[in-house]
Amino acid sequence: MAKTFKGRPVVAGKIDKGDAVVSHFGVNTLASFQKSALKKTSEVICSDQNNPDLFEKNLTKKVVCLPKTIGSTTGGMVLYTVCALGIAPAAMLFSETIDSLAAAGVILSEVWTDNTIVAVDGLGQEFLDYVKDGMKITVNEDGVVSVDNN
């Protein structure tokens, strides 16, 4: 059974049944992505030891569900870089209003690469409470997010 949530598309796009990875903490972009990027791996394995929800999980092509991003103001560049390298999440779904660093990252990716990180914000705390790792997520261009718990 699917439950739907309505957010605001910051970078609009469609995702069909992507795999959710959920963080209930602010995601530190630099700490999460830097190690894999430095090692030039084909997938990002989250390296942020301070985030027990994401640590050592694969984030590439996943639908990352989070409140917001935190950390260094290089965060936007880091997101843009992993997107240009083709190892970024497929989408980032924010329960809160998007922060300036994540916004920069998804916008730079949209404008300056051939890839896209779909971004929807303002989905609300209920969304973050409901969604669990591995659930299938469909995102529409209008910001409607459908979470399938089967």
């Binding site: 103001t73 290089t74 936007g76 990252g105």
Partner: peptide
């Protein structure tokens, strides 16, 4: 600007106006 320590100093101590931007932006 984007450097977080410089942004907060410029806004708070100098009274300039700057958002907490990301690098490149």
């Amino acid at each position: 600007w984007a450097e977080s320590s410089a942004v907060v100093y410029a806004n708070s101590v100098l009274g300039a106006r700057c958002n907490r931007n990301s690098g490149i932006i």
